[in-house]
Simulated scan of single mutants.
Amino acid sequence: MAASSSQQRAAAIAALLVLAGLLLALCGLTLSASVAGLAFAVPLLLLLSPVLAPATLLAGLLAAASAALALGALSILSRLLRSVAADDHDLVEEGKRRVGEVAAAGERTPHAALARGQGGTDHKKADNYYHYVAGRMVPNA
């Protein structure tokens, strides 16, 4: 009997080893099939993704808008450089002349005349009002 129980035990161990090997082989096949399926499906999922496709379109539109703005800036800069190179007169003097024109135009307004106390407007200035603030006559304090 002792020999038969050891033979049964050896047969059971051998059967379990064969079963473990078979299960290990099936596990390897499943893993390799999963990896191959993912390798095939990932590019399709990325290309047809409901999130990635609009995001890619938006990134492309933003890049195009940025390129258009850069071209506009370069166009403006080149036009400015051409005008500076073509002009023989001093730009600083022209700027001073323009500032003087704006200042002279500002002194001809009714507000400037009232601020100087000249009252050179078509409306009457009452005696109890002495200065003009934010478009209104302000009374003496």
Rank of each mutant, 00 (worst) to 15 (best):
A86L: 14
S66V: 00
S75Q: 06
A14N: 05
L81C: 06
L19A: 14
F40E: 10
G72E: 01
A20V: 08
S83P: 03
K125I: 09
G117C: 02
A33N: 01
L22I: 07
E101D: 07
E94T: 14
Y130G: 08
L47H: 13
A126V: 12
L71F: 07
R79A: 15
A85W: 10
V138N: 03
P110M: 09
H111K: 15
L91M: 10
V84K: 07
T30D: 03
L58W: 07
A11M: 10
L62I: 11
L47E: 11
S49I: 02
E94N: 15
L52E: 02
R136A: 01
L23I: 00
A33D: 03
V102R: 00
A67H: 06
M1R: 07
E101V: 04
E101H: 10
A59I: 03
D90G: 04
A41Q: 12
T109P: 03
G60F: 07
L31G: 14
A134T: 01
P50V: 02
Y129V: 12
P43I: 00
Q118F: 08
L91T: 10
A113W: 06
Q7F: 02
V51D: 03
G21C: 05
V138S: 10
A15D: 02
H89S: 14
A103I: 02
G37D: 03
A53E: 06
G60R: 14
L62R: 14
P139M: 02
Q8H: 02
L61M: 12
L24E: 07
A105T: 02
G119C: 02
L71G: 09
L44K: 15
L57E: 11
V18R: 11
L47I: 07
P139N: 01
A10E: 06
L57G: 11
G28W: 11
A55C: 06
L80M: 09
S4W: 10
G60M: 06
E101P: 00
A104V: 07
S83R: 14
A36D: 11
G100W: 03
T56Y: 10
A73L: 11
R9G: 13
R98S: 06
I13G: 01
F40A: 15
A85C: 06
A86P: 01
L44Q: 10
V35M: 05
A15E: 09
R82K: 13
L45M: 05
A141D: 08
A134M: 05
A55Q: 02
P54R: 04
A15I: 00
Y130V: 12
A141G: 09
Q7L: 03
E94M: 14
A112R: 13
